[in-house]
């Protein structure tokens, strides 16, 4: 499904701010894999997702998704394969456009945008049904400007948008980090159900170790630009937070006493 082969990325090369963010990182995802990604600040989690999404070109390596070599494709040209939800709830939607207009933009992800009408009647009915499944009452506010919605609502809408046209790969970049705990839990549950119902392959970054253990069928831990731990199936299901922290200190060579250390590393 997804094959990331030895990709590297150095930011600000040749300057005092030079930072090797990814170093010969390789990753293979099977169809239907739901992988949670953990690691300290600066470990390269977001950088890996951005490399796959094509926010900038990688320095070395290849990225193949669903049989397409997308290494040389700019962001907007690989969007037809990839759905994304960002950390900032403001990033995923256009605030001064209507809810249904936002959904319609996402429905056409990766398609040529011609002179056909932007939102059709049949689509409206589909959106109405889909919004109902969120259980937020948004199906009655389809012509409201998205800017009027709360952060949690906007994040739920962005999730829906990412899956509206079934993506080959769903990238969730700490998409609950900016939400309050209760809303974050709701959005996570929603992510789970959307991924399961559509049988999506997904990568989800989180700062919360319990979430990383509870969700998905596979967990990877990153440090200094590459993957240092990759557990799946039964082994992952029985993983505990304590084990995870021990593994981290062992593998990264750092002393980790608690969750917070891992967060701030």
């Amino acid at each position: 499904m997804l094959d990331v082969v030895k990709i590297s990325k150095t930011f600000n090369p040749g300057t005092i701010n030079e930072k090797r963010a990814l170093s010969e990182l390789s990753l293979h995802l099977d169809d239907g894999d739901f992988v949670t990604v953990i690691g300290g600040n600066g470990a390269g989690k977001s950088t890996m997702l951005n490399a796959i999404a094509g926010v900038w070109p990688v320095d070395e390596g290849r990225i193949v998704l669903d049989g397409n070599d997308i290494t040389a494709l700019p962001e907007h040209k690989r969007a037809f394969l990839i759905g994304r939800v960002f950390q900032d709830p403001m990033m995923g939607t256009a605030p001064n456009m209507q809810l249904e207009e936002n959904l319609a933009l996402a429905k056409r992800r990766g398609e040529r945008r011609g002179l056909r009408w932007g939102v059709t009647k049949a689509e409206r009915e589909e959106y109405h049904e889909r919004l109902k499944t969120l259980g937020l009452g948004l199906e009655d506010r389809m012509t409201a400007k998205v800017g009027l919605l709360s952060g949690g609502q906007r994040q739920a809408v962005t999730l829906l948008m990412a899956a509206l046209r079934k993506p080959k790969l769903l990238l969730l970049d700490e998409h609950t980090a900016a939400l309050d705990p209760a809303t974050a839990r709701k959005v996570l549950e929603l992510s789970d159900s959307i991924i399961q119902e559509n049988g999506l392959t997904a990568l989800m970054i989180t700062h919360n170790m319990s979430d990383a253990i509870r969700h998905g069928n596979r967990l990877i831990m990153m440090n200094e630009g590459h993957i240092i731990l990759d557990v799946r199936g039964e082994e992952k299901a029985h993983l505990t937070k304590r084990e995870l922290m021990e593994k981290f200190s062992q593998l990264s060579g750092a002393q980790v006493e608690n969750d917070a250390m891992l967060l701030s590393k």
Partner: peptide
């Protein structure tokens, strides 16, 4: 009419949120 079409909507979205547009495959 034009700003209600797919193309016109994409132009409006570009002004509103360019990062979202790129993620949705719009050539900003």
């Amino acid at each position: 009419w034009y700003f209600g079409t797919e193309q016109g909507s994409a132009i409006r979205a570009t002004g509103a949120n360019a990062a979202m547009c790129r993620a949705l495959g719009i050539n900003v």
